[in-house]
């Protein structure tokens, strides 16, 4: 089941890129959303994310990790493009 969903998501991403149907920014957004869905698939189907003995600290830890990941990537791009005024 997990395999099917993840392969469908991958092919979908390839298809939207090759179909030239969307603008550049939209396209980027769509494929990033598809990639995020892939994370959910991996966590839910393969990584047994919700399992734990005792309180689920690893869920909060990983959530915080995602927040900081977003901060670093978005912040760096925002800064290094001088507030979005340079191409990237």
């Amino acid at each position: 089941m997990g395999l099917v969903v993840s392969i469908v998501l991958t092919l979908l991403a390839l298809w939207v890129v090759q179909a030239h149907a969307l603008s550049h920014a939209m396209l980027l957004a769509v494929i990033l959303v598809l990639a995020v869905l892939q994370i959910v698939v991996q966590l839910a189907f393969f990584m047994h994310f919700t399992e734990s003995a005792g309180p689920r600290y690893h869920v909060s830890a990983l959530a915080l990790g995602f927040v900081f990941t977003f901060c670093i990537v978005a912040g760096s791009i925002w800064i290094m493009t001088f507030g979005g005024t340079q191409p990237y």
């Binding site: 925002w78 800064i79 290094m80 001088f82 507030g83 005024t85």
Partner: peptide
């Protein structure tokens, strides 16, 4: 002082 712009 890199001057990333007023918003940043």
């Amino acid at each position: 002082t890199m001057g990333a712009g007023p918003g940043v």
